[in-house]
């Protein structure tokens, strides 16, 4: 469990209208999940020919983690392409698993300018468990989005974030690059568990919009317990850095394999 230098009230309580909107988003997404979940996986598997080589092992580990505790779970993954959130979710669970355990399907914080610009993309984002965020937007707007995200975690939903704050421009996890907002969310939820996921396609040499068609992915996961004795921003930043450092460890193992 991460230690907390100081806890913020992030996600502790939203305005009633806001909570109702998120509950409605969950309900609608769940009702329509028998259509969109298999469709999303079909596009990845047969449309792009992608395959996660060790999916069975990753899915078993994820199932075990979920069954061990009902504490909030935040997945922190490396980030190389625009569809990483789909790939990570697919690596951790089959469509059938997510249809049976809809709350195991992670929520995302997609960048508004990448994913929520047209009516169709906004509808897709709405259905696919996403809360769009405008990075570099007004601080209060970003904080409000993190508040919604933390609220979802507190009520048993799983979250997925990319603690590097964007796709790695070097193609490798950069321990110097960490988004403090991730640490802020973790710090705000004392019981939050953090699962690091490293996923990479064999042909993925650098960052890109999409993985190469037909690419084969391998993943690795590890729990991390970030701690900080500091407070405020420094605690958030330290927690984020520990998470990114764990991803860098997983990356080293990936290439040493």
């Amino acid at each position: 469990m991460p230690s907390t230098g100081d806890e913020t009230g992030l996600g502790a309580g939203l305005a009633r209208g806001e909570e109702a909107r998120l509950r409605r988003q969950i309900r609608i997404g769940r009702w329509l999940s028998p259509f969109w979940v298999p469709l999303a996986v079909a596009v990845m598997r047969w449309g792009f020919g992608w395959r996660v080589e060790n999916a069975a092992e990753l899915r078993e580990a994820y199932r075990r983690l979920r069954s061990e505790s009902s504490a909030p779970l935040l997945i922190c993954a490396n980030h190389l392409t625009l569809v990483d959130s789909f790939l990570v979710a697919w690596a951790l669970g089959s469509p059938g698993f997510y249809l049976r355990h809809y709350d195991a399907l992670p929520w995302n914080l997609p960048e508004t300018t990448n994913f929520a610009t047209t009516l169709w993309s906004r509808a897709g984002v709405y259905l696919m468990k996403s809360v769009p965020i405008r990075r570099g937007g007004a601080r209060e707007e970003v904080a409000a989005t993190l508040d919604r995200f933390a609220w979802l975690l507190r009520r048993g939903e799983v979250g997925l974030v990319f603690p590097e704050g964007g796709r790695s421009r070097t193609g490798r996890v950069d321990p110097e690059s960490s988004a403090y907002g991730v640490g802020r969310v973790v710090k705000a939820i004392p019981e939050c568990r953090v699962l690091c996921v490293y996923l990479r396609g064999e042909k993925q040499e650098n960052w890109s919009a999409l993985p190469v068609r037909g690419d084969r992915f391998r993943g690795a996961i590890a729990m991390v317990e970030p701690k900080s004795d500091r407070s405020g921003l420094r605690a958030s930043l330290e927690i984020s850095r520990q998470i990114v450092a764990k991803l860098a460890d997983l990356e080293r193992d990936h290439f040493d394999r």
Partner: peptide, 18 residues
């Protein structure tokens, strides 16, 4: 800012800095 002015700024305070 924290170092220069020897102060501590909370996360919520940062949200107000535009």
């Amino acid at each position: 800012f924290e170092d220069e002015f020897d102060i501590e700024i909370a996360d919520e305070d940062v949200d107000k800095v535009n």
